[in-house]
């Protein structure tokens, strides 16, 4: 009986030498800083970083199907906000791929709405200083991008995608 127990315990130890749950690989994602210039509008109730797969060329592009990530709320009134997509998701998981529109969006509603007219774009991510069109964000496999910064200038708001108020 004792021997049986001994072998049983030994088998268990060998069986479990992998330690159970393993640390995962680097998750794809990005981080950076949002800079806010000027006075925040009084009517703003919530501010988020939003990531769309396809560029917002038409009113129908502002949809749940195209929206891939929404950050947690950015506090009202801040001048600078450092962010990372790790553990900062209100919605969505960042996956490797090419994304057509990354921006900071603001709403005058307390709750989250998916209607285009409820949102204003305060700042857009551009590639290499080219502010003539929204930049593409390319996230390779197992890669975490840094310095994905966005400037929100309340005095000079960016070109709004179609469908706004």
């Amino acid at each position: 009986m004792k021997n049986l127990l001994k072998y049983f315990l030994l088998a268990l130890v060998l069986w479990n030498c992998d330690g159970g749950i393993q640390p995962g690989m680097q998750e794809p994602g990005f981080s950076g800083t949002i800079y806010f210039i000027g006075e925040w509008p009084d009517s703003v109730k919530r501010t988020h970083i939003v990531l769309f797969e396809e560029p917002l060329l038409d009113t129908t592009d502002f949809s749940a199907g195209n929206l891939k990530y929404v950050s947690n709320e950015i506090p009202y009134g801040v001048k600078e906000y450092k962010y990372t997509t790790e553990n900062n998701s209100l919605f969505g998981v960042i996956k490797p791929g090419v994304y057509g529109y990354l921006a900071v969006a603001q709403s005058t509603l307390e709750t989250i709405s998916l209607k285009r007219e409820d949102w204003t774009i305060a700042g857009i991510y551009y590639n290499s200083g080219d502010t003539t069109k929204p930049g593409k964000l390319i996230i390779p496999e197992n890669t975490f991008l840094h310095n994905i910064d966005i400037i929100c200038d309340f005095n000079h708001p960016p070109v709004q995608p179609p469908g706004g108020k």
């Binding site: 749950i21 998750e27 919605f91 969505g92 998981v93």
Partner: peptide, 10 residues
């Protein structure tokens, strides 16, 4: 799926 618990399916 909502990204609230990264690697939550482990």
């Amino acid at each position: 799926d909502l990204g609230l618990v990264p690697n939550g399916d482990e």
